[in-house]
Design a binder for these strands. Structure first.
Length: 153
DNA sequence: GCCAACGTTGGC
DNA sequence: GCCAACGTTGGC
């Protein structure tokens, strides 16, 4: 099992939106960045654990956890001309974009802000700190443990 | 709203 | 097959 961090803009799809889904399972779609797609398509597997991160908001922070319940499949939104995620260069036999399904697992007692993560020596090597602008990224087991502990405080 | 970092694209 | 241009992302 591997660990990941997924970013979402809370105005678009917050952890509360995920928790409110039927069965608390939601489709993680709309990924239109190639680096993020490559992780999603090639490496994210059913059963993997996810840190849920709120981005592009007042206080960017890790806010909870989720679990991958379905590995990558073609993102249906790319084929829908009515959808803002429509991609005219994608076709049914050659999909360009992928999505996964995740299930809500937990909401942190206390969100862990990016500013705090940056200051924590144990988390200084996180991709989140090293490279911005990546909405799907790997997390080590140690980083996962540290963040979950911080979120429970 | 600026702009930097990244992978991909596509003209040559 | 090089590499400049492009689209996306997201903290500030």
């Amino acid at each position: 099992m591997k660990y990941w961090l997924f970013k979402s803009e809370p105005d678009e799809y917050s952890i509360d939106d995920l928790a409110a889904e039927r069965g608390q399972v939601g489709r993680w779609d709309g990924i239109r960045n190639y680096q993020a797609r490559n992780f999603l398509r090639d490496a994210v597997e059913e059963g993997d654990a996810v840190l849920y991160y709120h981005s592009a908001c007042k206080v960017p922070a890790v806010v909870g956890t989720a679990e991958v319940v379905r590995a990558a499949y073609a993102d249906p939104a790319q084929f829908d001309p009515e959808c803002k995620y429509f991609d005219p260069k994608a076709s049914g036999d050659k999909p360009r974009w992928y999505c996964v399904d995740i299930r809500f697992a937990s909401r942190f007692a206390r969100p862990v802000p990016l500013a705090e993560i940056k200051q924590n020596p144990a988390l200084a090597e996180m991709v989140l700190v090293k490279q911005g602008r990546l909405s799907i990224q790997p997390v080590t087991a140690r980083e996962w443990k540290t963040l979950v502990e911080l979120g429970e405080m």
